[in-house]
Design a protein around this nucleic acid. Structure first.
Lengths: 346, 346
DNA sequence: CTGTTAGCGCATTCAG
DNA sequence: CTGAATGCGCTAACAG
């Protein structure tokens, strides 16, 4: 005989979460008082506050942020897009970003782009529906549609892992061109002349390689055999890379790889073939040095601090969110730099 | 001109995202028609549908899922909690889970617990406010408050990486006790007698070790020197672990480590000290075999397929979400198993 | 097929 | 300090 009204009873029964209204009726106050007791306790009389807290306890009430948009303007949600989380270099970026964001009271929505701008567009599409307060992207290569949607959205954005002539918003990264140049210079100085590349089919990797090719081109080296491989990067893939290179008749004295994992594969394959490293063949990687060191004690590499990128990116976002008019974040460009670290393999 | 305009002009101006209502007024239809044109296009007359699509294009409208709770029941959000994303074993679990969830049209909210139940409780608290449709947890050790909140929430849950007498809901994992036993049995069979452990301060690691100690205890071995270290696991930490062990006067013939990374550190330290592996000292790790192989070609290890855990967990969640009454997921228990892989280091 | 009405859970006006 | 009324963006339920 109970009326079939919207009243779902006082206590949140199994299955249904109690709402702020449920708490209010149990506490015998109005909904708004509950809201205030929870969000701005200091303006609520202690006795009422206590009543509310007891009701919250009793019901196991957990406020819902889902409908918050109805009133407040922020979702306290930040989206982070990375190509993959299986690559330590990105997982460190992600980890650092999450740490900073969580500390500041934001939740993190994660999206995997698998190194593809098209995939990024799909993921972005889903993510924009959540109205995140900020977005951290990997790279600066996005589809035209993505760029339009992002800029129309008015959401603060940080692009990472790259430099760009004209970023969408903020930028925390480094110059892949500079890396290509620096690697070329170092290797040339060491006397290497027969370059080859084993790389992933990835825009950033390509940028580094093109830059390297340009640089050594100016020293008269024009032929650079290059094997391009599909993600994900694995050691086996690196081995296959060197194999392909040699099968094609290349005889490099140095192989530059787009990641430490590939480089490690090349080192293994070289060892298998009895190729003396670095005497007959030098190997160069790219990634996080500590990771490289784990892979192979002698691996030479371009060292990038992924964690710092994630941290800086998150901090930039937070600064903007704190004060959207802050001019210091308006055209933020952070170059976190890199180091070319030569070890036993070169 | 009979429409009663709801305030803001037609086009969403810079800064404000256009709403479904804006689209409706531009298209000259009612809001619900826009909603239907977008969600169930087949029940809308083609001409109207077209009008709506054009208006959507023109305004760059992106539907908001933030307030969806107001009408629909699902958030299409799944939360995944892992201790860290910097450990390849968990990042693979995460990667696989995200892949499955994204494919099914769910977004992933990520939480980092840093191996701590207290931290997990905090993160969980924030996440429950988002009313996710499902939650994937790592481990079965949660604070009492966490357990209560989770079970009251009525949200489908998958606990992973572990077995438990009485899981909260669904479970995809393996038995750490079985691993401890299996490792003990294998090492005893190989003739090792002086056991030692280098482990992270982590409940699951402790379970494995306790089980191992129990097993070898039954063979009369009662003394097992053990170094417990704070996360995160690093190679350097593993080296320090062996150092500490030896400084304390232990002289093990086998060191069992709670992760491959620590084991790798132990191997390095042993090499540095000129200790013959595996003649004078054997080393045992735990993690993903392919990862272990990258770390050290000879590393023995308990091989766990992290990706499979993530995949299975996500699939279980989806099955439940598809049909909440499906009995097959009601008491789902999946044991993904493990392999003890002995290689050169034992 | 389409529009009207109502309401989700919460917080922000503005009155008391 | 407290509360009633109102609105957020969206969609079920029920009309037409």
């Amino acid at each position: 005989m109970t009326s079939k009204r919207s009243g779902r009873g006082q206590a949140g029964r199994a299955g249904k979460q109690p709402t702020l209204i449920d708490v209010a009726s149990v506490a015998g106050v109005s909904p708004i008082t509950v809201s205030r007791a929870l969000n701005t306790p200091e303006i609520v009389r202690p006795e009422l506050r206590e009543k509310v807290f007891r009701a919250v306890q009793k019901l196991g009430y957990v406020p819902s942020m889902l409908t918050q948009r109805g009133s407040e303007e922020r979702s306290r949600l930040v989206a982070v897009l990375v190509p993959t989380v299986a690559n330590s270099i990105f997982s460190e970026t992600l980890q650092a970003a999450i740490d900073v964001l969580t500390e500041a009271g934001y939740e993190t929505l994660i999206g995997l782009t698998n190194y593809s701008a098209e995939r990024e567009e799909q993921v972005l599409d889903a993510i924009l529906r959540r109205r995140p307060d900020g977005i951290i992207l990997t790279g600066t290569l996005h589809t035209a549609a993505s760029k339009i949607r992002l800029s129309r959205s008015g959401i603060p954005i940080v692009e990472t892992w790259d430099s760009a002539r004209k970023p969408l918003d903020m930028l925390v990264g480094f110059s892949h061109e500079a890396i290509g140049q620096a690697v070329a210079a170092q290797l040339l100085a060491k006397g290497y002349r027969r370059f080859a590349a084993v790389m992933l089919d990835d825009a950033r990797a390509r940028q580094r390689k093109d830059s390297l090719v340009r640089e050594i081109g100016e020293h008269g080296i024009t032929e650079v055999p290059c094997v391009v491989l599909p993600p994900p990067a694995t050691v086996a893939l690196g081995r296959a890379g060197l194999t392909t290179l040699l099968e094609r008749g290349a005889s490099p004295d140095v192989v530059v790889c787009s990641s430490d994992t590939l480089a490690h594969g090349v080192l293994e394959e070289a060892a298998e073939r009895g190729i003396n490293v670095p005497r007959a063949l030098a190997v160069m990687g790219f990634g996080d040095l500590s990771h490289a060191a784990h892979l192979h004690p002698a691996l030479s590499s371009v060292n990038i601090n992924g964690a710092r990128i994630g941290q800086r990116a998150a901090e930039a976002l937070l600064a903007r969110l704190d004060d959207p008019d802050d001019l210091s974040t308006a055209k933020l460009r952070v170059d976190v730099g890199f180091d070319v670290v030569l070890r036993g393999s070169t």
